[in-house]
Design a protein around this nucleic acid. Structure first.
Lengths: 249, 249
DNA sequence: GTCGTTTAAATGTATAGACAAGAAAAACTA
DNA sequence: TAGTTTTTCTTGTCTATACATTTAAACGAC
């Protein structure tokens, strides 16, 4: 029978809420690998008994762990500890997954001509109401969906097929179709909580942590070629970039 | 008197939980700037009345918005809408804040010789139990704390003063003190929920979204010079990087 | 045995109520 | 008027309960 700490260091109990103390203790079991990847953790009812608190308090502790991608919950099934993250080289996710010996997969959601969204228009330096190509796809590694990528292409090219998008990096495909070379990329990263729609595409839970990686790609004349917005699952991947410094001397 | 939508599109009510519908509606008021930065939003009790739900449901809706950094809550005070994010150029946060016309501030937490943590040792290619210099500081913009930066320096230099750390970018300071040039940086980004300790240093709430930016800096001979771990507030800043592609042909 | 049904167990949503803690406004006192 | 105390309003924590939804196991009929 598992024993829980909780009341061990009562002298340091300085008004830390119960749900936090429980959360920290459960975190300890996971970090210390006492509960390894795939391990079932006690049910909410069992935790209620063991900690002598109400279910709401237990759920609040588990909520936090779930958001951080440490555990997987779903109704009907017991809650299990998650597996660690895959490092992903930014710019060229597809290529990088293959390089790591995993099987890259791509599911094309749509390739459509759409009106430019108001937040994308200034980045591409086009006026509103401009029609341009939108490519949306989900990239997976070993059949686990990891990234939702959507790209707005500045020029209206119509020779891009779903097959090409399924098998090629946008970093290669789009410049080739637009007959330009990419020279520069400006990317911004911000943490997000996944929406229900995003979570559905990524086969995980709404509210989980993710990174929104928005990139603007420029050609040699500093004209924007396309804007890419990638939603990356925070529980399965982290983004890795490499920078070289110009040596001055 | 404010009017809420909620029951407008009842025909599309396809089992979306109440707390989510409410959350989306509040989000709409914020995004549409109907509730601009600094605006007070109705109290929980008022929202209960207006939506005819229990307080728990309202709080659950607000929790999500708070985590995304869209609102600021604190006991005793009414809840207000937050101000937008600052874009931060990665590598050289201090410098970048100044360039944006904001007042950069630095508070040194400690400059100490410590035993290398087990997760840092392999990155710096040193053996365990090695003693090395740890620099910890909080960087702020216009007196708002934005980043907790902690750096482990591979070589044991002892001529670094708190004054230097307060006024200089580590990207310049450390290479100068170690008598090397930086040639390359490998950074990884992952979304996190701020811990209580981190939130305290950043004057925000535990559980808020943030980005953990871990960078390893190398010299010209590809030897690691230092490892920097930055915890960036997700509600106040986003990280921006710029990449140049090598033109081949 | 195999297919379909029932049952149990797990998480998800929602309610109502109680008390604590912090901050600001109101009332009071000097 | 100025300073202090009290009150009130706000968010934070916690409980207990109820029912819904999903999954898997147990059971039965064939």
């Amino acid at each position: 029978m598992r024993r829980f700490l909780m009341d061990v260091d009562d002298e340091t109990l300085q008004h830390i809420p119960k749900y936090l103390r429980i959360q920290q203790e459960l975190l300890h079991y996971i970090r210390s690998n006492e509960w390894g990847p795939g391990a079932k953790i006690p049910s909410e009812a069992e935790l209620c008994d063991q900690y002598q608190v109400s279910r709401g308090t237990i759920r609040r502790a588990l909520d936090e762990l779930e958001r951080q991608g440490l555990i997987n919950r779903s109704p009907g099934k017991p809650t299990v500890v998650n597996t660690p993250k895959i490092p992903l080289l930014s710019s060229g996710f597809r290529t990088d997954i293959a390089r790591k010996g995993m099987k890259p997969g791509t599911k094309v959601l749509r390739i459509h001509v759409v009106k430019v969204p108001p937040d994308i228009a200034p980045l591409l330096m086009v006026s509103e109401n401009t029609q341009l190509l939108l490519i949306e796809r989900v990239i997976s590694a070993d059949d686990i969906p990891i990234i939702i990528e959507s790209a707005h292409v500045a020029r209206l090219v119509d020779t891009i097929t779903a097959e090409e998008v399924e098998s090629t990096s946008l970093l290669e495909l789009i410049p080739a179709k637009c007959h330009v070379n990419l020279a520069r990329a400006v990317e911004s990263y911000e943490p997000i909580a996944l929406t229900k729609a995003q979570a559905q595409l990524l086969a995980c839970r709404a509210g989980n942590l993710g990174i929104k990686d928005q990139a603007v790609l420029y050609d040699g004349e500093n004209r924007p070629v396309y804007v890419s917005t990638a939603i990356v699952r925070g529980d399965k991947a982290r983004i890795v970039t490499e920078t070289s410094f110009h040596v001055h001397a």
